[in-house]
């Protein structure tokens, strides 16, 4: 197989602040194939959104220090000039953001905002671009598309605005789509519609999709592979089934255990993860999850490599020192995967 669509190696992003350097992303490696949905899962501060924004060059600035490598189709994104990068943004890589209410400019008509992007990258007349916009809006399921293009964002519901954002993202047929919590701000029935839209899009366009989310249910619904991030680092990655049925990192167990589900009754207490994520200004030495982990031992003071640790699945990587067999018993709480309550001294 040739090189994947996107190959990120050892990406690190630091922001200088008055209180010190924030290590938002700390050595992230991952890859995305064409037509593949890779979910990047984590909580606020895990670095999942910063990773996505860095690919687009949106984190560049006087206070940001970016290192490592990110190649799209073999082209290095991180060292591109701003001019080269602008030609990639919106064209080869497009992004859909979390809050559709605030992500469209309130003072321009929706159609003009789509046309603006098309004409930035393609030599089309206004009429041609407008016709393309109508096509895109119909494609993402906006009824009466030609007419709605003349509306302003505030005249749309949240779900419709997110469709507009997706139409805009698709306007130049990107190779890679980064969707940053695309359904978090939406109602559940609308969320289901948007996920359906993304699923179709993947099969029709063969674009690679990075889905940044905190919601494991959404991940289970749409992703092919999953990358779990914690405190700036990837702690585990693998296929959907590997991650849900044979999770290796205690943080993943905690995430899986603490979600409430519609399909099962858990009258017992939810096995919550104790404590809070560490500060990115002064993360703990060694494994970042160690202070919250009930299974931590001496060796956790050293940073574990992200490497394959399960014998039969070489693509399943994690950062945890525990023995695989031991993990398989430790992660069971009341017969289900979860993180046991910590033993307090």
């Amino acid at each position: 197989m040739s090189e994947p669509l996107l190959q990120i190696e050892d990406l690190a992003v630091r922001f200088r602040t008055d209180e010190g350097a924030v290590r938002a992303v700390d050595g992230v490696s991952l890859s995305v194939e064409r037509g593949e949905v890779v979910a990047v899962v984590g909580e606020s501060g895990s670095g999942k959104s910063v990773t996505g924004m860095t690919l687009m060059g949106l984190t560049r600035g006087p206070n940001a220090e970016i290192s490592g490598s990110a190649r799209l189709d073999g082209r290095e994104l991180l060292t591109m000039s701003n001019r080269e990068l602008r030609a990639v943004r919106g064209n080869d890589i497009a992004m859909v953001f979390q809050d559709p209410m605030s992500s469209l400019n309130p003072v321009y008509r929706v159609g003009d905002q789509i046309v603006e992007q098309i004409r930035t990258h393609q030599q089309l007349s206004r009429q041609q671009a407008m016709a393309r916009a109508v096509e895109l809006m119909e494609r993402v399921g906006v009824p009466r598309a030609a007419e709605r293009l003349r509306s302003y964002p505030h005249e749309f519901s949240g779900g419709m605005r997110q469709r507009v954002m997706i139409a805009m993202a698709l306007s130049c047929s990107p190779k890679l789509l980064i969707a940053d919590e695309p359904t978090t701000a939406l109602d559940v029935t609308i969320q289901a519609q948007i996920l359906e839209e993304l699923r179709q899009l993947r099969s029709e366009t063969n674009a690679g999709i990075i889905l940044v989310t905190h919601d494991l249910a959404v991940v289970a619904d749409i992703a092919d592979r999953v990358v779990v991030m914690y405190s700036g680092r990837v702690v585990e990655q693998g296929t959907l089934d590997e991650l849900f049925y044979d999770p290796q990192h205690p943080y993943t167990w905690g995430l899986l255990g603490s979600i409430t589900r519609v399909d099962s009754d858990r009258s017992a207490r939810l096995p919550a993860i104790d404590g809070m994520p560490p500060s990115l200004l002064a993360p703990p030495p060694g494994c970042h999850f160690q202070p919250r982990c009930p299974h931590a031992f001496e060796r956790c003071g050293e940073v574990p490599e992200l490497s394959p640790r399960t014998p039969d699945s070489p693509g399943h990587l994690d950062r945890c020192w525990l023995e695989v067999e031991r993990k398989r018993t430790l992660r069971l709480v009341d017969g289900q995967i979860g993180l046991a309550a910590p033993v307090r001294a």
Binding site: A192, L216, A217, A220, I222, F244, L256, R261, V262
Partner: peptide, 8 residues
């Protein structure tokens, strides 16, 4: 509408 966090 709610996906279940269990792929199977």
């Amino acid at each position: 509408a709610i996906p279940i966090p269990d792929p199977a």
